[in-house]
Nucleic acid binder design. Structure first.
Lengths: 209, 209
DNA sequence: TGAAATCTGCCACTCAGTGGCATTTGGCGT
DNA sequence: ACGCCAAATGCCACTGAGTGGCAGATTTCA
C-alpha cells in the first residue's frame, strides 16, 4: 500500500533505510552503542558512510528511529485532532492514537531502541532533545489553532510535560520488564502512569526531619 | 573564604577552570558554539587540550558549567532538607535555596550559557540529559530518605518534572527578556511560573473542531 | 534512445575526544 | 634549605564522527 505504488527510487531508498535501522539496532545491541563504529553498520548493509548521512543526521538518529516515527505521527495528529476537554486528556489521547498507528513490527524495534537508550548518555540526550523539539512544534501548532485569545504557552506546556513524564516512566518500565514487550503491555503501563497523575501531583510528604 | 585556605595546587586549578569557562562563554557567544573549536578556547587560556579534558568532560560541559553549579547545590540540598508538606512545594523551595546560594557574579555567566543553549541543538540535548541525571539522583535520594513504605518513584517523579518544566520556561523567558538579567528578575519569573501550575494542569480547551 | 536529474561511492579533510609518556610543579618531611 | 614523591601538565599520535567535492552509475521522463 504505502510501499508499492511509489517511484522505484523511493522504494529502494526506504528499503536501504530500513536495513540500516535494523542492522544498527542489532549491532548496537550486541556490542554496545559506543563500541560500534559507523563503518561496521554501513559495512553490514554494504552502503557507503556518505549514503548513511544522507538518510540519518547522526549515529544517535538511527538508533532512535522508532521513537521518531512515533512522534512524527503524534505531531501530525495534533495538527488536526479535536481540541475538546482537558488539555492533559487531549495530549494523552493523541499519544494512544499515535501508538495505534504504528505499523506492525514496530514494537521489537522500539524496545531494542529503548533498552539501548536507557544505558547510553548520548542517546538519552538525543532522545530528550528530540522530545523538546516535538514539544516546541506542538506548542506552535496549538497556539495557531487556538488563536491569540487562547491559553498562554506556559499553560499549554505544563500539561504536555506531565504527559511526557508519565510516558517516559511507563516506557522505561515496559522496556525493562521481563514480560514480552507487546503493544498491549505498553498501552497498559501508559494507562497506569496516566491514572497516577492526579494523586502524584498532590503528593504530600509526611513530617520528618 | 572558599578560595583561599586551600592548597595552592587546588586554587590554581580552580582559577584555570574559571578562566576556561569565561573564555569559552565569550568565544561561543562571539562566534557561535559550533563555529568555535576547542583549540581556540584552550589557546585563549594558554592551556593544552589535554588539561581541558581533565576539567570538563566535553565541549558542551564547559558551556553549561553555570547550570551544573546550580544543580549540584540543588542535589546537596535535597539530601538534607526537611521533607514536609506537598512534594511540589519541597522541590520548588529547594530550587530557591539553590538559587540563593549561587555566588555573586553567577548570573552573567548563567545568562550567557542559557542564551547559547537556546539556539544550539547539542547544548539543548546535553542540558536535558544533565537534568535527567539530576532527576535520577533526586529520586534515589528521596527513595532512601523516605524508606520502602514511602511513595512510589512514579509519584515522586511527576511533581519533580512539573517543577522542572516550570523552571525551564521561566529561565527561557528570563534569558530572552530585554530587562537586565538579575537574580531577582529570575526569581520573579520562576515564582510566576510556579504560581501558574495549578490552573495550567486543569486547563480545558473550549469546544472547537 | 538519450538527456537531465538524482543517487551513490570514494577520497580527503576537520575536529572532538583518548591513551601514553616525559616533564614540570607544588606538597611535605628531614 | 634540600630533595623526594605525587599530582598536574604538555606533547604526540591515534580513533571515529561528520562534511564537502567530484566522478560515475542509475532512474526518470521526454
Amino acid at each position: 500500500m504505502t510501499l508499492s505504488e511509489l517511484p522505484l527510487r523511493e522504494r529502494k531508498k526506504l528499503r536501504t533505510r530500513a536495513a540500516l535501522v535494523e542492522a544498527a539496532l542489532r549491532l548496537f545491541g550486541d556490542k554496545g552503542f559506543d563500541a560500534t563504529t559507523l563503518d561496521e553498520v554501513v559495512g553490514a548493509v554494504e552502503v557507503s558512510k556518505r549514503t548513511f548521512f544522507r538518510m540519518f543526521t547522526s549515529k544517535e538518529d538511527v538508533a532512535l528511529a522508532p521513537e521518531k516515527e512515533l512522534w512524527a505521527v503524534y505531531v501530525r495528529h495534533i495538527e488536526e485532532c479535536p481540541l475538546d476537554g482537558p488539555a492533559l486528556a487531549v495530549y494523552q489521547r493523541a499519544l494512544f492514537v499515535a501508538l495505534a498507528e504504528m505499523e506492525p513490527g514496530w514494537e521489537p524495534r522500539f524496545v531494542a531502541s529503548r533498552r539501548l537508550a536507557e544505558g547510553t548518555q548520548a542517546l538519552v540526550a538525543h532522545s530528550l532533545e528530540h522530545c523538546a523539539g516535538v514539544t516546541a512544534t506542538v506548542l506552535d501548532t496549538l497556539a495557531r489553532r487556538l488563536g491569540p485569545d487562547g491559553p498562554r504557552p506556559l499553560e499549554l506546556v505544563l500539561p504536555l510535560e506531565v504527559m511526557l513524564a508519565a510516558w517516559r516512566w511507563a516506557m522505561k518500565e515496559w522496556a525493562e520488564a521481563a514480560e514480552p514487550p507487546t503493544r498491549e503491555a505498553l498501552r497498559t503501563r501508559v494507562e497506569a502512569a496516566f491514572a497516577a497523575v492526579p494523586a502524584s501531583l498532590d503528593l504530600e510528604f509526611r513530617t520528618r526531619s
